[in-house]
Simulated scan of single mutants.
Amino acid sequence: MIEQFAENVDLGLSKSEKTLPSKYFYDKNGDELFIEIMNMPEYYLTRCEMEIFTTQTDELVDSFRADKNEYFELIELGAGDGSKTRKLLAALSDKGYQFDYLPVDISQNSLEQLQLSLQHHLPLVSVVPKHGDYFEMLGSVKDSHHPKIVLFLGSNIGNMTDTVASDFLYQLGANLSKNDKLLLGTDLIKSEDIVLPAYNDESGITHSFNINLLHRMNTELGANFDLDAFSHAPEYNEDEGIAKSYLLSNKEQSVKIAATGKTYHFRAGEKIHTEISRKYDDDVLAKILAKTDFSVNSKFTDQKNYFANYLLNRN
C-alpha cells in the first residue's frame, strides 16, 4: 500500500502540471474531515441525496424490481458512513426482501465504523464488508450468480473525467449480469454561487481536507511539506460543469519525499491538481453511458433539482 502510494505520488508530482490522486484523501483524519464536510451548510450534495432517500424510499425500492422470494446482493461502492443507505436498508428489511449488504470501501476505518453502526441500528440486516478496490471486490462476488444491485452514491462518479467514468462503468457492467441494477448518484450542473462554496466553505474544513493530503504524505512517506506554504484553491466553470480542487504553492520551494528518494520543486503560484467534481445533466450522462452496457431506467431528484439518483439497468 505504501509502495503504491509513493509510486502514485512520484508519478503525479513529476508531471509538468502536478497532480495527486484524490483517493489518498481518505485516511482516518480524512474520513473524519469528510464527514464534517458533508455536514457543512454549504455542502448541499449530502442533504439533497438524503432528501431523495428519505422522501422517495418506497419509489427507490420499487424501481429495483426485486423479487421478495429471490435472494440478492446489495453492493455499495465507497460506502462511507452509510447514513443515506441506512434508509434503504431499513425499508428493504421491513418489506421482507432477502439480501446481504456488501459495503465496499478503501478505508478499513470507515467499514469498521459502518458495521458497528448497522449492528446497533439494523441488527437484522446481514452486513458483509469488503475492504479494497472496487473491481477487486466486485470480482470476488462476480461468480455468485445472484442478482445484484450496486449503489454508487454521493456523486463519487464525479471524481472521474468523462472518459474515465465511461470506462469505469463499462468495467462495472462487465462484472454484472443482464438486468442487474446500478443506482448512480450525480450532482447536477448549477450556477457557481451554489457549487463553489461547497468546495470552499467559510469554516475552512475543505481547506483542511485538501491540506491533509500533504500531512498524510509527511507521515506515511517521510515527506517534509510545510503545510503553511500551501493553500486550498478550488475553481468551478459552469459552462464546463466541473469543479476542480488544487493545492497552491505560496512560494518557491522544494520538498523531499523519503519514500520516493526524490526532491520536488514548486514555483510560487504553482498548482497541484487534487480532485475534480463533475456535474451532470441527462445529456452528459447519456454520452458517458453510450459505450457501456447500461441504460437509464428511472431518475429521482430532490425538490430543488440540485441532485439526481439515476437507476441504470445492465442490458
Rank of each mutant, 00 (worst) to 15 (best):
A6D: 01
L11E: 12
S14A: 14
K15R: 15
P21L: 02
S22W: 05
K23D: 06
Y26F: 15
K28W: 00
E32R: 13
L33E: 08
F34G: 09
I37F: 05
I37N: 04
P41K: 04
E42Q: 11
L45H: 00
T46P: 03
R47Y: 09
I52L: 10
F53I: 05
F53W: 05
T55C: 08
T57Y: 14
L60F: 01
L60I: 14
V61F: 02
S63R: 06
K68A: 12
A91R: 15
L92Q: 01
S93G: 06
K95H: 03
D105S: 07
S107L: 00
N109E: 02
S117F: 04
L118R: 00
Q119N: 14
V125F: 01
V128P: 01
E136N: 11
L138S: 15
G139L: 07
V141G: 07
S144N: 10
H146E: 11
I149F: 02
L151W: 08
F152T: 09
G158H: 06
N159P: 14
T161L: 00
D162V: 09
T163C: 05
V164T: 14
D167P: 06
L176Y: 07
S177A: 10
S177R: 10
K178I: 04
N179W: 08
D180C: 13
K181I: 14
L182R: 00
L182F: 05
G185Q: 02
T186G: 08
S191F: 04
D193H: 14
G204R: 03
T206K: 02
H207Q: 13
H207E: 15
S208D: 15
H215S: 12
H215A: 13
F225P: 02
F225A: 03
D228E: 13
H232M: 06
A233E: 12
A233N: 15
P234Q: 05
N237A: 08
D239Y: 10
D239M: 13
S249V: 03
N250K: 11
Q253A: 03
S254A: 13
S254M: 10
V255S: 04
A259K: 10
K262I: 00
T263E: 12
A268N: 07
G269D: 02
K271E: 12
S277L: 00
S277E: 02
S277Q: 01
R278C: 00
K279Y: 07
Y280P: 09
D281R: 04
D282A: 14
D282T: 12
K287R: 03
L289T: 01
A290R: 07
K291N: 14
K291Q: 11
D293A: 09
D293L: 02
S295F: 07
V296T: 11
N297A: 08
S298R: 04
D302M: 06
K304G: 05
K304I: 06
Y310A: 03
L311V: 13
